[in-house]
Design a protein around this nucleic acid. Structure first.
Lengths: 152, 152
DNA sequence: ATAGTTGCAAAATATTTGCATTTAT
DNA sequence: ATAAATGCAAATATTTTGCAACTAT
C-alpha cells in the first residue's frame, strides 16, 4: 500500500506518518491523475478533513522526495503534481480539432531521450511530450478549414 | 528587421512602438537564447536604459502575442521566455535545481515521433518536449546531499 | 483634445517560513 | 521529556493592475 511506502520513507528519516500526512496522501492518490496544491486543499476541506495549507505544501514536498508524487509542471494556476506510484509513464497526443487525448508509449523514444541526456550531461528525471495535431477522424474532415496558427 | 514586425503588429492594433518597447525588444533579442523578466530588467538597468519593470512585463506579453517571443516554461525562478524569430525548432531540458534551460534538437527524435503518429493514425502538427532533471553542475551537488532541490 | 503609454505603488497569486502550541513516543 | 509536526500569520517572490501624470498625434 502507498501509505506503507510513505511511512517507511518517513521512519527512515526519523519522521512520522501523522493523521494530516495520511489525509494528504490519500487525497493525492484519490485523483488518479494530475492535481495542484490549492485544489487538493480545497477538496480536502470540502470533505471535512483537517490539515492546513502549509501542511499540504510541506507534505507534497515529502511525497516528491520519496517518489510517490512528482512535480509535472508549473502553470499560471500553480504547480501541477501527479501521483507516480503504480502508474506507467506515457506521453500525449492532443487533437486540435476535437480535443481528444491519445496516450502512447514508446520504449524506443525513451531510450533515445536517455541517450540525448547522456550526451548533454543531464540527469533526466521525467519528461513531458505533447504532440499536437489531428486525430484520424478529424484529419479527414479537416482539409477545408482555415484553423488556428499555433504551429511551431 | 524584428522591430519592423513588432511595429506593424502594434499599428494594426492601433498601438505604438515606444522607446521603452524598443529597448525591451532589443534586450530580448540581444540574448540569443532564454531569459526571464527579472534578468532582462536588471540587465537593462545596468546598461542605463530606462523602462520600468511593469513595462517589461507588459511588453513581453505583447511580444508573445505577435509571436516574436514565446513562453517556454515556468520555474521556481520565474517564467522563461525565448526569442522565436528566425529560430528553428528545438526541445528543452530544464534543471529543477537552478532553472537552467538546455536546448537540443535530434533529427532521429523527430523522425521517431513521425513514425509513432503514423502508427496511431494521427497527423502531427507540432510538439513540445520538456525533459526535467538536473544539469551537470547541480547533479554533482545533488549526490552528496539528502535530495533537496530547494536551494535558494 | 484624444487615445495610448508610462512608472509607481498597491494588489493578487503561489509558496515558504518563523514561531508558539500541540502531539506522539 | 523530548523531538517532531501543526496551524497561523507574516514573509517572499513573481506578476498584474489601478491610477495619475506624461506623450505623441
Amino acid at each position: 500500500m502507498d501509505s506503507e511506502i510513505f511511512k517507511r520513507f518517513l521512519e527512515e528519516k526519523g519522521q512520522r506518518l501523522t493523521k494530516e500526512r495520511s489525509v494528504i496522501l490519500r487525497e493525492a492518490f484519490a485523483c488518479e491523475g494530475h492535481f495542484d496544491p490549492e485544489t487538493l486543499y480545497a477538496d480536502m476541506k470540502r470533505r471535512g478533513m483537517k490539515a492546513s495549507r502549509a501542511s499540504v505544501y510541506r507534505t507534497l514536498s515529502l511525497l516528491c522526495e520519496c517518489g510517490l508524487v512528482e512535480k509535472v509542471s508549473k502553470t499560471e494556476h500553480g504547480t501541477i503534481y501527479e501521483q507516480r506510484h503504480g502508474r506507467q509513464h506515457h506521453d500525449h497526443m492532443v487533437c486540435l480539432s476535437c480535443g481528444k487525448v491519445i496516450e502512447f508509449y514508446s520504449e524506443h523514444l525513451e531510450k533515445l531521450q536517455d541517450a540525448i541526456c547522456r550526451e548533454k550531461n543531464f540527469t533526466g528525471k521525467s519528461h513531458t511530450l505533447e504532440i499536437r495535431g489531428y486525430c484520424g477522424v478529424c484529419a479527414s474532415h479537416h482539409d477545408s478549414e482555415g484553423e488556428n496558427a499555433n504551429d511551431r
